[in-house]
């Protein structure tokens, strides 16, 4: 456990001293701020964060890979992985440590975005249900997106490749519900079920459904499992 902590802590320090992470944070807050104010121009503005959440998950398709691309790709590139993997550390400890670090940085961003929610509570009288649910959904979605990015970072020693592949996977997950129509039948239905939209939209409408929570947690577990396996595979004959 101490190794997980050490790996995570090292990465967290890097996040808070790296320009990339700050740029990502800035873009995130700027864009989501824009989505937040979008509705306010309406003659009858709704006191809601729904557009904020809908925008945030799209923005995160691009930003999550930017946060995770470094995690293992850089270790492979610089060769530091040679010392990491020859230390008596289990592969899952490395993956979980790295994942936790990205999660911590992401949660800090989420916390900063509370600013918008606070504004809403101060100047309007929003329905708190959808806001809590929306945040829960967004945190789950972001955590899943980070696990996708971690996997692709584990697979490549090129950060750009890692980020682009992760974006591809996240886009596919985002648009999967369209496959429902295109593919049709049972296969289409299954692919559609895998999609993010169907599971996220409930949250931003204020509905907390256990199946949706289970969906995101399964996605995270699946990608973390694959990441551990990928790292492990370096030791396979």
């Amino acid at each position: 456990m101490r190794t997980v902590q050490a790996v995570a802590w090292k990465e967290i320090q890097i996040y808070f001293s790296s320009p990339t992470a700050y740029i990502v944070g800035l873009i995130f807050l700027a864009l989501t701020g824009f989505f937040f104010t979008q509705d306010l121009g309406d003659p009858f503005p709704e006191a809601t964060l729904t557009p904020f959440f809908d925008g945030a998950i799209v923005v995160f398709i691009l930003l999550a890979p930017a946060l995770t691309m470094r995690l293992l790709a850089e270790e492979s590139k610089l060769g530091t992985i040679e010392l990491l993997l020859t230390s008596p550390v289990r592969d899952w400890e490395i993956i979980i440590g790295k994942y936790l670090a990205s999660l911590v940085f992401f949660l800090v961003l989420v916390a900063l975005s509370f600013f918008y929610a606070i504004l809403l509570f101060v100047y309007a009288d929003p329905d708190p249900g959808p806001i809590y649910a929306g945040y829960l959904g967004f945190i789950l979605y972001g955590s899943a997106a980070l696990s996708v990015g971690l996997l692709t970072s584990t697979m490549s020693n090129n950060q750009i490749v890692s980020a682009v592949v992760a974006m591809g996977i996240l886009l596919a997950m985002f648009f999967a519900d369209r496959a429902f129509g295109a593919v049709g039948g049972l296969a289409g239905e299954i692919i559609g079920e895998m999609g993010v939209r169907g599971h996220f939209d409930d949250f931003s409408r204020g509905v907390i459904d256990t199946t949706n929570i289970v969906y995101f947690i399964s996605v995270i577990a699946f990608f973390l499992f694959l990441s551990i396996r990928t790292l492990e595979s370096r030791r396979w004959r």
Partner: peptide
């Protein structure tokens, strides 16, 4: 290792502590 791979943004003691922790 031949290439002496190190984390260039860490301090000497910070790095050695980290490696010590990884070695249990």
């Amino acid at each position: 290792p031949e290439t002496v791979p190190l984390y260039t943004d860490m301090s000497v003691t910070g790095y050695l502590k980290y490696m010590g922790t990884l070695r249990g």
